[in-house]
Amino acid sequence: MIPPRHSYLEASARARLAGILDAGTFREFCGPRARQTSPHLPALGMPVAFDDGIVVGEGRIDGRPVLIAAQEGGFMGGAIGEVHGAKLAGLIERALDIRPDAVVLLLDSGGVRLHEANAGLIAMGEIQRAVFDARAAGIALVAVIGGRNGCYGGTSIVARSCDVIIASEEGRLSISGPEVIEAVEGIEEFDARDRALVWRTMGAKHRRLIGEIDILVRDDIDAFRDAIAGHIGDSRPMDLDALEAEHARLVDRLSRFRDAADGRDVWARLGVNDPDRVSDIEADEFNALVDALEGARR
């Protein structure tokens, strides 16, 4: 058996864009030729990237116009600095002017770049505001997670503010990273080197089962493309009713799973018959399991 050959996990930001957009439709804004590099990194003796680790622009998916951003995990772990953040915020703000069918965010980031923390944090606020403005205007935001750096810190808040999240099993979504939790709470609380535990806690399968991710796909650029294409234009209402329903869901979840020590305990309570197998099954079998669980709940 030869496994899939076009891994999203391994692809660079530009290769992901090339695989997801219709061929020849991409037009980059503020590309590497513009050399908009970080004003902060040289002062720390750090190298810069000509695109500051993010590619933004417009293109088409199945012929429908989208704005799209791709974070490059290979540069500073996809972390958000001043220029990187401004490019992302500016892209999302542009949606209000041109009304695309969707804004697609290919996230691969540990959060704010600590080397330029103040500028990065301000940028996070601007990105967050731009996301809500676009959603209030009825424009669909699609977050995509499947890179090596996962989606952590402020980037995870942005993702959870979108209409839909698509992820592969290799993707992770959490505010704090495993090493941070271990450093703060101790190795008895969370052993960051136990990678299976990390994925049972922050991995996309767990996030899908507890309802924080909408779609799980296998690690394949075409599978991601198809999932994104299926959700262009799908915007969810963002009003008081939706917010209150979400809060009620979180309160319910806390009371249901408060004493669960491991992801497997949570899955068992959700009705998964063989929680030990969940980590090992492929995306198709996993999605069938999720469908069965959700069908049973309805």
Partner: peptide, 25 residues
């Protein structure tokens, strides 16, 4: 032929059980 530890598990029909430190699932 395999680009990840998970691919090796797939090739082995699930017989290879990698230690936790090598997993990303």
């Amino acid at each position: 032929a395999a680009r990840s530890i998970k691919d090796l598990v797939r090739w082995s029909d699930g017989l290879y059980a990698p230690p936790a430190r090598f997993r990303n699932w």
